[in-house]
């Protein structure tokens, strides 16, 4: 609790009149600058609640933006720059988690879940239609049969010439 209060005080103290990325930080080279913007959206401001350094107005974020641009000018690759910040702040600083065993579940979980979902759906549909063929499920009632035909014919009737 105390540490929470403290960080709040800290945040207020570190807040200056600045608002996100400042004009004097921008690079003249548009290609480098757009890389800078893209990178600074992936880096987390270390004193803020949940913000990237691009939109943060904290002093540390400004320094991080400046360092990032200096490294870009020095010709470093995006990976090298990211590694520079990770060396100092750990993976916490990355808004886009790196692929490693601890994040496999994060990155592949959704796709696996979807695949499993498709599998379950497929099996269910097949089981049900087989149950119908075996006669273990209720066959269509005469009403349903008629309705079925109606839909079918309606579709055919609707077919564009």
């Amino acid at each position: 609790m105390k540490s929470w209060l403290y960080s709040l005080v800290l945040m207020l103290a570190a807040t200056t009149a600045a608002w996100a990325v400042e004009p004097d930080e921008l690079l003249d080279d548009p290609v480098l600058e757009s890389r800078a913007r893209e990178l600074s959206k992936q880096l987390r401001c270390v004193v803020c609640q949940n913000q990237d350094i691009d939109s943060s107005n904290a002093g540390v974020a400004r320094t991080m933006r400046t360092l990032l641009r200096e490294r870009l000018i020095a010709g470093e690759t995006n990976d090298e720059i990211i590694a520079f910040f990770v060396d100092r702040y750990g993976d916490f600083v990355l808004f886009r988690p790196r692929l490693k065993p601890a994040t496999y579940l994060l990155w592949f979980g959704p796709a696996v879940l979807f695949a499993v979902g498709i599998g379950v759906v497929f099996v269910t549909i097949r089981c049900r239609s087989r149950a119908v063929l075996d006669g273990t499920a209720d066959p269509l009632s005469p009403d349903e049969e008629r309705e079925f035909e109606a839909i079918f014919h309606e579709n055919e009737g609707r077919r564009d010439p």
């Binding site: 959206k41 992936q42 987390r44 949940n50 990237d52 750990g90 993976d91 916490f92 600083v93 990355l94 808004f95 886009r96 988690p97 601890a102 994040t103 579940l105 994060l106």
Partner: peptide
């Protein structure tokens, strides 16, 4: 919730943000 899972299991802190 993933940052919480990772912290609970490995005691490491990670962030998951808009790029993810």
């Amino acid at each position: 919730l993933y940052p919480l899972f990772v912290e609970a299991v490995t005691d490491e802190k990670i962030s998951v943000g808009p790029p993810y």
